[in-house]
Structure formats: structure tokens, C-alpha cells
Write a protein that binds this DNA or RNA. Structure first.
Length: 106
DNA sequence: AGTATGACATAGC
DNA sequence: AGCTATGCCATAC
């Protein structure tokens, strides 16, 4: 529980529906911008209550190794939350990227 | 212990 | 603008 995975999961759980965050952002929020890769590991071990589908890479691209299924499920889950996609099939980060400051402001 | 792996990110070319 | 190479660091074995 004290591991960094739990920390990552806790953060990802704070991402509201319709918003997404990136591995790098999560890593930065944890205090180490270099932990972006470890964040991916945390996603692999993430329990079901963690909305790992709301985590995408810097380009807004989906993961090649999403657990339940491939990118297909990943995209479906995001679409269900009305997450905007770009023409290239990536998430529109500019429109739905989650920032912790938003939580404070309300 | 040390080596290998990887759901990323960045720098060069 | 798109591809290749390198860095980085927590887990797994």
C-alpha cells in the first residue's frame, strides 16, 4: 500500500469522467517527472476501481496493451464519457486534459 | 546482488 | 513532419 503504485492509483482515481491525464502529468504530480514509465506499470497492476482508461500518453494516444482488451475497449470507455477525439484517433488533450487545479477551483 | 523489461518522454536527425 | 536513438527509473526474475 505504501508503494508508489498506490499513489498513482489514488491520483488516477481523482480524474473525473470526461477528462483524461497523461503518464507524464501523473508522474509530475507525484513529484518525479521521470516516473512516467512506472506509471504505466502501475496501470498494469491497477485494480478494477481505477479508471486507467483515463490515462493516455503525451500525444493523447491510447495504449497498445490495455488490459481488458486492446485500444478498442479503451476508446469505447472514453467515448462513453464524451471524451473528445481528434481526427487522427487520439484524444483531444487540449479540450479534456485534467488539471488538479480544476479540483481546487471547482 | 545484477540484469532485463516496459500502458513514457525527450532529443537528434 | 516523422522516424530512430537514448535517458530514466520502478518492478520482476
Amino acid at each position: 500500500m505504501n508503494g508508489m503504485f498506490a499513489q498513482v492509483w489514488a491520483l488516477v482515481r481523482q480524474v473525473p469522467p470526461g477528462r483524461v491525464t497523461t503518464y507524464g502529468d501523473v508522474a509530475r504530480l507525484l513529484g518525479n517527472p521521470r516516473l512516467s514509465r512506472a506509471v504505466g506499470y502501475a496501470m498494469h497492476d491497477a485494480p478494477g476501481d481505477v479508471p486507467c482508461h483515463r490515462v493516455v500518453n503525451r500525444e493523447g494516444g491510447l495504449s497498445d496493451a490495455f488490459q481488458p482488451m486492446g485500444k478498442e475497449t479503451h476508446r469505447i470507455l472514453l467515448e462513453m464519457e464524451d471524451v473528445p477525439f481528434l481526427m487522427n484517433g487520439n484524444v483531444d488533450l487540449a479540450a479534456c486534459r485534467w488539471e488538479p487545479e480544476m479540483e481546487r477551483l471547482g
